[in-house]
């Protein structure tokens, strides 16, 4: 069993296996994209990926199937995502700075609680949270979805940033302190600029998770004008008016495009983020 033998047989076999697995895995998604560009009745008949002609009728039909049209939901989702990203970046980086660089009473205890909340399922807190937010009249606004981010409840990102700040050389802080900087300036002018990779990871994950999140958006957004993409898509699929797979597929593809773009742009940060902290 020489390395020569290995190179000749094992490596090509590995590649064949991997390509096959990848193809089978991604086939349904590719097929959805292709099918969305076919005339409606052909979707059922053809399991292949060959496209005779490019039809956009499904997109036109799906886009206008609900009132308001799909554009509104895309804008709603975009606004929501933007709010969540800003909230997470500001609040999580502040909390992370405190946990990574400051010494305070009960630090270990608070840090333990923070780690514990990473694993707290949303379903456990959703009922009283809903009661609270509905008393405040926040149902059918984005506030119940954005305010928790402003309050650093995505502990996963706090942990990710703590890890990152710990890796930065302390000498920089100490030099700044000798020059008379307080903690706000050390945070803003030294730590924050150095932690852009962690901030990028947070941005991309927040984008994807918020864009995909269905449970809390389903609960808090019941007015069609406030629907986000996942809620609208589900209501479109459920409505008896829409029975054609073509337009359902078309709008599904539209809803996945931003995720795909985020994936293309942010791959590097995603892989790093998961490898160090185990996100989804």
């Amino acid at each position: 069993m020489t390395t020569e033998w290995r190179r000749r047989l094992v490596v090509p076999a590995k590649h064949t296996g991997l390509v096959l697995i990848g193809f089978v895995m991604l086939y349904p998604v590719l097929w959805m994209v292709v099918s969305s560009l076919r005339p409606g009745d052909e979707i059922f008949r053809s399991p292949g990926l060959v496209l005779d002609s490019l039809q956009t009728e499904n997109y036109v039909e799906g886009w206008n199937a609900l009132t308001p049209s799909f554009g509104t939901y895309l804008v709603n989702s975009a606004v929501l995502v933007l709010g969540c990203i800003v909230g997470n970046l500001v609040s999580c980086s502040m909390a992370a700075y405190a946990f990574a660089r400051l010494q305070f009473t009960g630090k270990r205890w608070w840090f333990g609680i923070m780690l514990g909340t990473i694993m707290l399922p949303i379903h456990v807190i959703i009922v009283p949270q809903y009661v609270l937010f509905s008393q405040m009249g926040w149902v059918n606004t984005f506030l119940p979805l954005i305010v928790p981010k402003i309050l650093a409840t995505d502990a996963f990102f706090v942990f990710l940033m703590v890890q990152f700040i710990r890796g930065l050389p302390r000498e920089l802080d100490e030099a700044a302190r000798i020059d008379g900087c307080g903690h706000p300036r050390i945070f803003l002018q030294i730590v924050l600029p150095l932690m852009t990779p962690a901030l990028a990871t947070t941005t991309i994950f927040t984008f994807i998770w918020t864009w995909n999140d269905f449970f809390s958006q389903l609960i808090y957004l019941t007015d069609p004008d406030m629907y986000t993409v996942p809620v609208a898509l589900r209501s479109f699929v459920d409505s008896t008016v829409a029975t054609s797979w073509g337009s359902q597929f078309a709008m599904s593809v539209v809803s996945l495009v931003p995720i795909f773009l985020a994936f293309l742009i942010g791959q590097r940060y995603l892989v790093k983020g998961i490898a160090t902290t185990g996100g989804k």
Partner: peptide
């Protein structure tokens, strides 16, 4: 390629698919 489904998997669109 293998990671992409993890990002898409929790979406409504994939459930429709």
């Amino acid at each position: 390629a293998f990671y992409l489904p993890s990002l898409l998997g929790s979406s409504v669109a994939i459930a429709v698919l």
